[in-house]
Design a protein around this nucleic acid. Sequence first.
DNA 1: GAGAATAAATGACAATCATCAGGGTCTTGT
DNA 2: ACAAGACCCTGATGATTGTCATTTATTCTC
Lengths: 233, 233
Amino acid sequence: MFKQPECDTCSSRLSTCLIELAPLQVLEVSQEKHSQLYTRNSYIFAEGQYPRGIYCIHKGHVKISKIGPDGREHIINFAGTGDVVGYSSLLSAETYSISCIAVQDSSVCLIPSEIFFRNIRENPLMALHVMQHLASEVRHTRRRIVELTHKSIRERVAEALLIMKEAFGVDSDGITLRSPLTREEIAGIVGTAPESVIRTLSEFRSDKLIATNGRSIQLLNIRGLVHVANIQS
Amino acid sequence: MFKQPECDTCSSRLSTCLIELAPLQVLEVSQEKHSQLYTRNSYIFAEGQYPRGIYCIHKGHVKISKIGPDGREHIINFAGTGDVVGYSSLLSAETYSISCIAVQDSSVCLIPSEIFFRNIRENPLMALHVMQHLASEVRHTRRRIVELTHKSIRERVAEALLIMKEAFGVDSDGITLRSPLTREEIAGIVGTAPESVIRTLSEFRSDKLIATNGRSIQLLNIRGLVHVANIQS
DNA sequence: GAGAATAAATGACAATCATCAGGGTCTTGT
DNA sequence: ACAAGACCCTGATGATTGTCATTTATTCTC
């Protein structure tokens, strides 16, 4: 164990449904939560387990993924500092249909089910916040369905790079992706084989859209990538 | 206009979040709702429009779909008698990211935004009901992502037939799908071209999994279809 | 119920993508 | 720092699937 963070002074709380809580409830959450460090590639929770609460990312980045029928990992999305994961399985009262895995060393707080349910029952604002979160997740996931089903690998790889930029940001040089993902994990975003990702990245390199250096990727021409990705609306 | 149904005696209400309402609120909803008939292929709402409430399917079947970057319709899912659609865009306070279209002549009631929001604010049980609905929608949509991305056309067409069976049921003969969908619409479920669906259905016919008669499809061997579909968990 | 419009079906072909194999390079953990 | 392992990259090949064209069958509309 390490020093447990305090929720009342935690800036991550302010971007979650916990912002709606009164000071007394914040204190209770702070006392009842369990904070834990996860190293890269360790599970916060796994498909098939029973939910024990919601997880608030205090610091770091995680991936939400699901193993496909072919045994390959599909990355549904990412969450980072200030995001909450695990609503949907907890609310469905079923085992996790997804896994949550740290992609960087991360500090994550578990807020136990009872506390969560009591608060959404007693606090309409927090309930509304959760509903809005779920609603935007539904919308996002639906859009992803159409993108993954109706776009070429080339389009989807370009989009994956933009998703990674959104999720991890870029270095101080302004172009190097702060992403620890392997080519195989990028393939998990795109929904394809690692070789196809590598090949497409090589094309992008020829087209001067990106540069690469081992695992790290520099985005040289973001407008070009947006164009290749063929983003809608 | 035609005779407006009454919510208090409507059995569809009992399968929705409106089941949580007290009699007085049911009465209010019943007075404020707008019921309307939609013929096949007419829009209940369309991508880009502003939500005006939630829609409760009193009788009939609708599809929830989205136009892909290639201009093809992708069918996200179906809703039928006793289902409610339109939560996510209303809660996100954005324009619809999907369209809702009648696939049969259907009677659908619009419950205005104000009534919906007032009730979820004042009724924690109804709020919880909506959260659970959204949660299971998130789970379903995520599973769909993986299925669509990692399965072959053959697997996905088999699955589409099972989805249609679930959504529309079968005739009194026990095998004929009660589905009004064209091959192109089935292609919209599968995420492929109509020709590929037709070809795969021909294969299934050779394999004695189905029989066809114009648009109508008989499921001869459901266990076989389940096997081909390669359903997980 | 007849004609027009729409949809189903099939063939041929091209393009995309997955798979397998192999060599080189980078990362990681001690 | 070093060694072992993991990962990146490329080539060759075959299977799957999308596209275009055409014929036949079915549905819809008046």
